[in-house]
Write a protein that binds this DNA or RNA. Structure first.
Lengths: 298, 298
DNA sequence: CGATCTTACGGGATTCGTAAACATA
DNA sequence: TATGTTTACGAATCCCGTAAGATCG
């Protein structure tokens, strides 16, 4: 014989109204049915909860003690139901996002600006690491999703293209490039260049672009962090190639940029998640929004 | 459609073993019945809790989240059941005892010495007040029970005699009274007496005893607290009449006592509780023990 | 006698167990 | 093929509502 949540609800209704009849209407139950429910509860606990004469109902001491505990139980059950529904709707939970440097600084904030307010009870962690590290984190379960330029074809990961992130060249406002309407790769060769090092996917893309043109890319300055690049460019030491997703969000006072006029000068940004694994609900909500934002940026 | 504690138990069994068959035997259920229970739970929450191929069962993300909540619920229900049974058995709760000065210092500790260890989860409060105050506290609901010499006959209170508390005279070890085997009231008149003031029930009993003998009681020293009496007697300033229940427990180094040789030199100690009110379970346990201890002291 | 809880009893839903079907490694 | 889950179905149980009975003011 087991205690029932229904019994607790009914008990609380009686304890509050101190009347079987009133509690019955409150519970949408006939009065004898309610009477029986209380009786069963008392039998289950082998305890008398109410002192009842036909004209008066009052809680026994044990009943009073049980009321406190029952109140807590009722709250817990209700709480559990809303929590689990929120969780299933992606309104609650933890979301661990791994993203490459430019995505983390450009695209992700754009998405989270909408996602955050819509999902106030979701704990979000952003891992801004190099692309390879991002994918490794997904594989290890440390991140739910990776947003990187690298398309992975391993069987344990599944990647889906999100948008094309075109390359742009960045330079000071007064720079000669500011006069040009369109910029080609060949236009850059006249100026010293600032670039991130070879560990970066962005750099590898640039290298490939140069190789395709039969040239070698030899930057005048090589750094690890994008922020350092911006400093060098701002100081007039050179120009630098970055991705559109970054410059369209970051505040780049004193700098201007042009999209590189080449059909192949882009990286395909992909979402990567674990294969053979149903995504957490909050992740599907996040993914849906990512696609919307990606579509909106055209 | 409502969630059931049985469903939660079953869910947790499956979540722990990750097998419907094993969980079924653990729950004393046929495997199809268990399968149906899980299905109903999933329908109630409108959420898929397990990812199951016929050969493998695993928790979904929602299921994992639900497991934490369910674990908490299960604990709460179990906790509630044991708590309420402990409470009903008098093993748990709050007990507020009001007792007159000598009872509080003598008899009560004797009872609690046994009661305390047997009921470790009972919060006990002792109100050591004058007898009238004790009865008033019971009437006001501030105390569950009063142990006093005063027998109350008001309709809202019900008193039951517990034991006879005989009067004794207390004196220093070297006092002449130490030579006597029996002491009568008349024997005391030769010595200065120390007594508590007229607000005390003890003092009123002494006054009555003297009146019955056609004498007036005129103590040499009158104080409010028993502890002060003991100090004065110890200093050799006089002898004092107290109750047997007090001296048989208190440590009275350097003092001796004799029972007063009179059939009427006692007070009838009573328990008093509210009438028209079922006593809290812990109180019945306490009362039972009081009667046992009272019977044992003869 | 009127209001309220309890008991009695029949119908309907829920839950269970057995047996068969089904799906994966 | 062997193991483990789901479906199908009949039986027992539980739960509810109506009607009658009991009790207190």
């Amino acid at each position: 014989m087991n205690i029932t949540f229904r019994q607790i609800e009914v008990f609380l209704a009686v304890a509050r109204s101190l009347s079987f009849s009133q509690a019955a209407v409150a519970c949408h139950l006939s009065q004898p049915a309610l009477s029986a429910t209380i009786k069963r509860l008392e039998e289950t606990l082998s305890v008398k909860l109410f002192e009842r004469t036909t004209r008066q109902v009052s809680l026994t001491d044990v009943g009073l003690e049980f009321q406190r505990l029952a109140e807590h139980l009722s709250d817990s059950v209700l709480h559990t139901q809303v929590r689990i529904k929120e969780y299933a709707a992606g309104k609650r939970g933890r979301l661990s996002i791994a993203a490459g440097p430019s995505i983390a600084a450009g695209f992700i904030p754009q998405v989270l600006k909408v996602f955050g307010p819509q999902h106030p009870d979701v704990e979000i962690r952003i891992h801004d690491e190099l692309s390879d590290t991002c994918l490794e984190m997904v594989r290890a379960g440390k991140a739910d999703i990776a947003l990187t330029p690298a398309m992975h074809t391993d069987s344990d990961l599944v990647s889906v293209p999100l948008f094309k992130d075109y390359l742009v060249v960045l330079f000071p406002l007064a720079h000669p490039l500011a006069q040009k309407k369109t910029v080609r790769w060949s236009d850059l060769q006249a100026y010293p260049q600032v670039a991130v090092n070879n560990r970066s996917n962005l750099r590898q893309t640039i290298n490939e672009q140069y190789r395709a043109l039969g040239a070698d890319f030899a930057p005048a300055y090589e750094v690890a962090q994008v922020a350092t690049m911006l400093g060098l460019i701002h100081a007039g030491l050179g120009v630098g190639v970055l991705s559109e997703s970054l410059v369209e969000r970051a505040s780049l006072d004193g700098l201007a940029h042009r999209k590189l006029n080449s059909r192949s000068a882009y990286r395909r940004i992909c979402t990567t998640v674990l294969a053979h694994r149903a995504p957490p609900p909050v992740l599907t909500a996040f993914l849906t929004l990512c696609k919307q934002v990606a579509a909106a940026r055209g």
